[in-house]
Simulated scan of single mutants.
Amino acid sequence: MQRNKIHIVYGATASGKTDQAVRLALAAPDSVIINADSMQIYKEIPIITNQPTEEERKGLPHLLFGHRSITEHSDLTKWLHEVADTINEQTRLGKKIILVGGTGMYLKCLIEGVTTIPEIPREVREGIVAQILADGLPVVYDNLIKLDEQSQKLKPADTQRIIRAYEVVLHTGRSIFDWQKQPNKKFFEISDFVIHYLNISRQKTYEKINYRFLKMLEWGVAEEAGNAGNIFDKAVLSGKKLSDLPAHKAHGLRELIAYTKGEMSLEAAIQKAQQVTRNYAKRQLTWWRGWSLGLEKQLEIVEYEVLS
C-alpha cells in the first residue's frame, strides 16, 4: 500500500469487504479503518447492518462505526463532512487511511465532489410531497416547468427527480441544471484514491446473503430488531417521522420488526429480508459497472476475484 493514498475497499454486500480491509490494515502498520456504509453508523443495529465484530476488527482502530442513534437523521452531506474531517485528522496523525463500505453514492461524492447546491430545508420537500398527494404528479410537474423551463428535460413520471428539481428552484430561485453546471465542491483529488474492488458473481453474493441472514438469526438479530422497533415507536410518539429516520430503511430491519410485532411470520420475514438484500446487491453490482468505466484513467483500481 502507498503511504499517501486513501484506500477504499468496495464491493457488493456480503462480498467480504470487512475481511479485506482488515488484511490491508494488518499489512500496513499505523492504518485506521473508516466506515463508508450509510447504515453501519447506527449503534443499536450492529447485527442487521453487519458491522464488524470485535473479533473481526483484530484490535485495529475502526472509526465512524456505530456512533449514531437510529433516532438521528443522517444523510450524504453530514457523512461527507464527517468522513473528510476524520480522514484529515488521521492523516495529520500519520495514519494510513482505509475506507470500507458499500454505499456507492457516498464514495462517488467523496471522490468526485458534490454540487454546491445549498441545503434545502426538509419542510420544502415535505410541502412538495403533500402537493403531489393532493393534486397529482402531473400538476406538480406543470408547476415546475412554469418556474424552470429546463426541467422539461425530466421525464413526467420521474417522481424523485421532479421533487428534487422543484425543491431546488423553490428554495434557491435557480434551476438545478444551472447549479449542476457549477464546479463541484471537492474534498480531495481523484488521484488521492486507490479502490480495492471485490469482484463477486451475482449468484455467489446471493448465496452469501441468504446464508448470512440465517446466521444473523443465530446471533440475535430478531431481538435487535424488536428493540429497534420499540425505539422507533417511541420516536414517532415524540413527534418524529419514520421517513426522517434513515436507519428504518436498513435492509431486512422492517421485515424483522414486522415479525416481532406479529404482523409477519418468521419464514415470510426471512424470505422478504433476503430478497430485499439481494435486490440491493444487484443494484450495487450494476452501479459499479456503470461508474467504474471511466475511473481507471483517473485513479488506481485493484481488483480481487471473490471465489468463496
Rank of each mutant, 00 (worst) to 15 (best):
F187H: 07
L60G: 03
E263Y: 07
G102F: 03
L110S: 11
I70N: 00
M1Q: 08
P183G: 05
L266C: 07
L26G: 01
M216C: 07
G262A: 01
V114R: 03
K186P: 03
R92C: 12
A268L: 06
K155M: 14
K240C: 10
S308E: 12
A269Q: 00
L147N: 02
P183R: 01
T49C: 05
A222I: 11
A222Q: 12
G173H: 03
Q2Y: 12
Q274A: 03
K96V: 01
T260Y: 01
P52M: 00
K58D: 09
A165F: 05
K78I: 13
T159N: 08
S31I: 00
G136Y: 04
D85Y: 10
Y259C: 03
A235Q: 02
C109N: 15
Q131Y: 12
L266Q: 09
A165E: 12
V236H: 04
I97D: 00
A268S: 06
G290R: 00
G294N: 13
K78W: 12
P121T: 12
E224N: 09
P118R: 02
T277Y: 03
V302C: 08
S15T: 02
G113T: 00
G262P: 00
A235M: 04
H62D: 04
F65P: 06
E55F: 09
R174K: 15
M1Y: 14
Y106K: 09
R3L: 14
I111L: 14
I128G: 10
L99H: 05
G127C: 06
D158R: 15
I195W: 03
E55S: 10
Q2M: 15
T172F: 01
V129D: 09
L295N: 04
T71Q: 07
G66M: 00
E56N: 06
L256F: 07
R92T: 15
Q90P: 01
L214T: 06
L99A: 05
S308Q: 14
L133P: 07
K204P: 11
R57K: 15
H196T: 02
V169G: 01
R289G: 09
R68H: 14
T116V: 14
E119P: 02
G66C: 04
Q182C: 15
G226A: 03
L63N: 01
H7E: 07
S38T: 05
S201Q: 03
I6R: 13
K58V: 02
S175T: 00
E54V: 08
T49A: 08
L242F: 07
N4M: 06
S175N: 02
C109W: 10
S151P: 02
K234S: 11
K297V: 05
D178M: 10
L147S: 02
V306A: 02
M1N: 09
K272G: 06
T13M: 15
E54G: 08
Y141F: 13
A281L: 02
I97T: 00
K282Q: 11
A25V: 00
N199M: 13
T115I: 09
L237F: 10
G101F: 03
K5G: 13
L299H: 08
A281W: 01
T91M: 09
G11C: 05
